[in-house]
C-alpha cells in the first residue's frame, strides 16, 4: 500500500516572507489529519499548496491516482489537475460562498460535479442531489432554493454535499466550522465525522480549534511560524504535548 498523498519538504515563500517551510508527511487512505496553529502560522498556505491551488516554491506533493499512478502535482497537466479537483478531491471552504455557486439552486450546486464528469440525465442528477441533501440533513423541499436563503450551517452542509457527490477519496477542509454558532458547529462536526467514517474518506482539516481536531482527526500537525513543530496522534498531541508552543496551545483551551 502507498500513501494517498505525500508531501516532501513543501515550502512556500512570499518574497522574503515564508508561508510554510519544509513540511513533510504522508497521508494514508481513510486517515484524517488536522493541521492546527494560530492565524498566520502558515496552515492555510500549506493547505493551498497541498491541494494544488498554489504552486509550492520548493518541494513536492505526490498523489496516488485511482489508476494507481503516483503523480507529482506540479508535473500533472492542468487538465488532469482540474479533473482531479472536481472528482477525486473535495475542498470545503470556511466561507461557503467561496465554495458554492450562489447564483444557482441547491440542487444545481450538488449536481454540478456530476454534469462536469458527463452525467446527462436530468432524472439521475435530480435523484442523486435529493439523496445527498438528505444525507447532509437538508429537507428535500429546499432543493430548488437558492443558497442565499440558507442559514450558515445549511450552506456549509450544502457545500459538503456538493463536494462529496463524486465520491472523492480526499477532502481538504479550511476551518469548516469557522464562523458558525457553537450549536451549529457541533451538528456539522458530527455530520462530517459520520460521513468521513462511513465513506472511508481521507481528509486534511485546517483548524485553530483543538476541539474540532479532537473530534475529527486521528493525527495532528502543529504549525508555528510556517514550520511543523510537532506531529503525532491526536490524543498524543493533546494529552502529552512536547513542544513549548503546543503546551501553551493545549493549556489555553478553556474547560467548560
Amino acid at each position: 500500500m502507498t500513501a494517498l498523498l505525500s508531501a516532501q519538504s513543501v515550502s512556500k515563500s512570499y518574497g522574503a516572507r515564508a508561508g510554510c517551510m519544509d513540511v513533510c508527511f504522508d497521508l494514508w487512505p481513510g486517515e484524517v489529519l488536522a493541521i492546527v496553529g494560530e492565524s498566520g502560522s502558515g496552515k492555510t498556505t500549506l493547505l493551498r499548496c497541498l491541494s494544488g491551488h498554489l504552486p509550492a516554491s520548493s518541494g513536492k506533493v505526490h498523489y496516488s491516482m485511482r489508476d494507481g499512478r503516483h503523480v507529482a502535482l506540479d508535473e500533472m497537466s492542468e487538465a488532469e489537475r482540474r479533473l482531479l479537483m472536481r472528482t477525486d478531491w473535495g475542498f470545503v471552504h470556511q466561507d461557503a460562498r467561496d465554495g458554492l455557486r450562489m447564483g444557482v439552486s441547491a440542487g444545481a450546486n450538488v449536481g454540478e460535479r456530476m454534469m462536469a464528469v458527463g452525467e446527462r440525465h436530468y432524472g439521475h442528477i435530480r435523484a442523486t442531489a435529493t439523496d445527498w441533501l438528505e444525507r447532509v440533513e437538508i429537507p428535500e423541499d429546499r432543493i430548488d432554493d437558492s443558497p442565499w436563503s440558507y442559514s450558515g450551517g445549511m450552506r456549509q452542509r450544502l457545500q459538503i454535499a456538493r463536494n462529496l457527490v463524486t465520491s472523492p477519496r480526499l477532502v481538504f477542509m479550511d476551518e469548516p466550522t469557522g464562523g458558525l454558532d457553537v450549536s451549529v458547529q457541533a451538528r456539522l462536526l458530527d455530520l462530517i465525522r459520520g460521513l468521513v467514517k462511513r465513506l472511508d474518506l481521507a481528509a486534511i482539516v485546517v483548524t485553530h480549534d483543538l476541539a474540532v481536531a479532537r473530534l475529527l482527526s486521528s493525527r495532528m500537525m502543529v504549525m508555528q511560524q510556517g514550520r511543523v513543530i510537532e506531529q503525532g496522534l491526536t490524543d498524543q498531541i493533546l494529552e502529552d504535548p512536547q513542544a513549548p508552543y503546543t503546551q501553551l496551545l493545549v493549556s489555553s483551551v478553556l474547560q467548560v
Binding site: R101, V104, G107, A108, A116, Y122
Partner: peptide, 13 residues
C-alpha cells in the same frame, strides 16, 4: 459541465 447547470436550473424551475 456548467453549461448543463443552467439547463438543469430551467428544468428545476
Amino acid at each position: 459541465g456548467v453549461m448543463h447547470v443552467k439547463l438543469y436550473e430551467d428544468i428545476a424551475q
